[in-house]
Each structure stands twice: as structure tokens, then as C-alpha cells.
Computed example of a mutant assay.
Amino acid sequence: MMHLSYCTNVHPAEDLDGVIAQLDQFAGPARSEAELDVVGVGLWLPAELAHELATNETSRDRLRAALERNGLEVRTLNAFPYAAFHAEVVKLDVYLPDWTDRRRLEYTIDAARALAAFLPPRADGSISTLPLGWRTGWGPAEDEVATAAFVELVAALEQIRDTTGHTIRIGIEPEPGCILDNVADIVEWLGARSDVIDPEFVGVCLDTCHLAVSFADPTEAVTAIESAGLKVVKIQASAALEVLTPADPASREAIAVFGEPRYVHQVRERHADGILRVDDLDEALATLPGNGPWRVHFHVPLHMVPDAPLGATTDVLRTAVDAVVATRPTHDVHLDVETYTWSVLPEPPADLAAGIASELAWAQRELMGARIE
């Protein structure tokens, strides 16, 4: 069964009043405009708000009332950004605190406890988290601390299941430039620890923009996850920018306008003998030869086709969704539309709720088909 939602990390709200306002102003109107009876929201809860909702019944009641009046439900959370995801400059700060910092573990447990309080009866939940941390300064000692944190997390998730009846699964989200850069990395890391990190509770969040940027074959990636005894616990429906002829002046001019100061936009260039990797778009324009196609970590709205000579990797998204459904036909699949970049598009929309509605309608039509729930 497929469950469609859109991720609220597109909104800058950091407290309960702000989250409720965003549901009233954007999520409810988008659901109505997309003509959906009920739509999910993949809530982004900053750390302080996650703790508040995990510990305060009055706050939970307020949020529950806002969800109900807007025809919304919650089955998944985004616990990747810890806080300040819409600061003037985010860049590599989005990977802090990493999984060597106890604050990351406590935040994730708070998020799981909060999610359990909002799930529909007998439903399981999913939470996405960062792929350990950014790659620099990471070694065996950091790996050991992170492993221990996930062991403790599993124990907390077992307790939540035993007390609430809800199984909450954590999806580690591979991302270019991080410790777990791609699907192969996470399969290796979790596979080597399956004796201590229970794959019933910790699996993979498959962000299809990140998957595309890595130039991985989506069907092979999903097969590798399943063959390792792991689960795709959540799909983040997203598309990357693609530049087929990056050495062409018109292509370089077109992609350059997507460079902006808030978020990091990793770029990969494919060659017959390997992949060239840089950490941001300005670096790519300055250093990459442009002899092969580029894929750029910039989440473009799913229903929008970039003007030529640019393209988007929506075919990777479609193929990945089909592969997950084919490998898990009797399981719930959480499909969370994650386009957090509306505000940094070269031409931001005048009506964000209408843009979100168009994306949801596209996802309903193009990704879910007869599987719509």
C-alpha cells in the first residue's frame, strides 16, 4: 500500500505555532486543490519541537487538531536537519550534529516518540536521518561511536513498539559527499552491523535525487538493498537537475542560475572511466571539464520540466518507485515528496500552496496510479 505525503521542510517554521500555521496556510489548501480526500505530511520537526511533542500532551493535542481540520495525516517524519534549515546560509551545517554527537540520538528518539502519538491505528511509521555525517574527519573511532548510538536507538524503538504497538523505522539517507555517499555505501555499512543494528528498525531512506546524482541504476540499487536483508523504509520523491552538455556555453549559463548561497548543491560528472565529484555548483563550474553529463543536487519540483538545455531526473524517480513496489508488494511504502528548494528557485512561485498541489497531483498520477491510497 502506497501512502503519499509532502515533506514540510519546505517551510521555515521552527516552533509549534509556526508548524500549525503552515498546515493551515499551505498543507490544507494544497490537499484541497489537489482534490485529495486525505494527504500525508512528512513533518520536519526541529529538535526542540520534537522534544516538546514527545513530552507534552497539550502540544500534541494542538497539532492533532490542526491535522484533522486540514484533512492531513502523519506517517513519516524528516529528522535530517536538526534545526535552522532555512537560515540565510545552511550549507554543511545541515549535517550537524552528526551521529557521533549524543544530541543526534536524543533528537531521533524524541522524533520517534512524537511520531508514535500521531500515527493512525495499527500503522507503522518511518523517520529519515542523515548518513552519519559529512565525510571529513571521520574514522574508525567515529564509526564505533555512531554504531553504538544506533544500537541504543534500536532499543528505544523496541520500547516504543512494545508500549504503543507502532513500529517506527529509521531510514538512513545516503547523500553525495557524506560518509554514506550512495546506496552501495549504506548496504556495506549496515550489512556489516546487522548483528547489532536490527534491520527491522534501521534501513534505507531512498532519496531519488541523491540516487540520480550518484548515477546509480535505480533497479540495481533497490535490489542490492533487499538482497542485503535491508528495507527501503521510505522513498523521498525528488528529482535532480541534469546537464547533458556541460561544456556548452548555453548549458553553463542555464545551470549557473541555480547556484545560490543557502544549500549545498553537489555535482557529479560521469565518464567512461569513473565519476568526477565536487561539493557545490560553483566549484563544478570552475573546475569540472564538462566532458560528460552532470547531475546536480538541486531538488526541482516534480511536475516542472526545466527549460532546455537542462533536464530533470524524473525517470530515475519513476523507476525507483516501481522497483521498491515490486520488491515489497505486500508492505506499506511511504512516498514523501521532498522539494525543499521552492524558495531558492531562480523564479520562486507566487503561490506556494498551488505549487505543492501541482506536485502532489503529479505524484498521484505519475507515481501511484492504481496504487493510490
Rank of each mutant, 00 (worst) to 15 (best):
residue 6 Y to D: 01
residue 11 H to C: 12
residue 16 L to A: 00
residue 19 V to L: 15
residue 22 Q to I: 04
residue 30 A to D: 02
residue 32 S to N: 01
residue 38 V to D: 08
residue 40 G to W: 03
residue 41 V to L: 00
residue 49 L to K: 08
residue 49 L to H: 07
residue 52 E to A: 11
residue 54 A to V: 00
residue 64 R to Y: 08
residue 65 A to N: 07
residue 74 V to I: 14
residue 76 T to A: 15
residue 80 F to A: 04
residue 80 F to H: 09
residue 81 P to W: 00
residue 85 F to V: 00
residue 86 H to N: 00
residue 92 L to V: 13
residue 92 L to Y: 11
residue 94 V to A: 15
residue 95 Y to N: 11
residue 97 P to R: 05
residue 101 D to F: 02
residue 102 R to I: 07
residue 105 L to D: 04
residue 107 Y to V: 05
residue 108 T to R: 07
residue 108 T to P: 09
residue 111 A to Q: 01
residue 113 R to M: 12
residue 115 L to T: 09
residue 116 A to T: 10
residue 122 R to H: 15
residue 128 S to I: 02
residue 129 T to W: 05
residue 132 L to V: 03
residue 136 T to W: 14
residue 138 W to Y: 14
residue 145 V to T: 15
residue 154 V to E: 05
residue 157 L to S: 01
residue 163 T to R: 10
residue 171 G to K: 08
residue 181 D to G: 08
residue 188 E to D: 15
residue 188 E to F: 12
residue 188 E to Y: 11
residue 188 E to S: 14
residue 198 D to C: 09
residue 201 F to A: 10
residue 201 F to I: 04
residue 204 V to W: 00
residue 205 C to I: 06
residue 208 T to F: 01
residue 212 A to W: 02
residue 215 F to N: 05
residue 215 F to H: 12
residue 229 G to K: 07
residue 235 I to P: 12
residue 237 A to V: 06
residue 245 T to P: 03
residue 248 D to F: 02
residue 251 S to G: 04
residue 254 A to K: 02
residue 259 G to W: 01
residue 266 Q to D: 15
residue 271 H to A: 12
residue 272 A to M: 09
residue 275 I to L: 13
residue 278 V to G: 11
residue 279 D to F: 12
residue 282 D to F: 13
residue 282 D to Q: 15
residue 287 T to L: 11
residue 289 P to Q: 05
residue 293 P to C: 01
residue 297 H to C: 03
residue 297 H to E: 08
residue 297 H to F: 00
residue 304 M to I: 12
residue 308 A to C: 02
residue 308 A to W: 04
residue 309 P to A: 01
residue 311 G to E: 00
residue 312 A to W: 04
residue 313 T to L: 08
residue 316 V to S: 09
residue 316 V to I: 15
residue 317 L to A: 08
residue 318 R to D: 02
residue 322 D to L: 13
residue 323 A to I: 06
residue 326 A to T: 12
residue 329 P to L: 10
residue 329 P to A: 10
residue 330 T to E: 13
residue 333 V to E: 06
residue 335 L to P: 09
residue 345 L to Q: 15
residue 346 P to Q: 12
residue 349 P to R: 03
residue 356 I to W: 03
residue 358 S to K: 13
residue 361 A to N: 10
residue 363 A to K: 10
residue 364 Q to D: 14
residue 366 E to T: 03
residue 370 A to T: 15
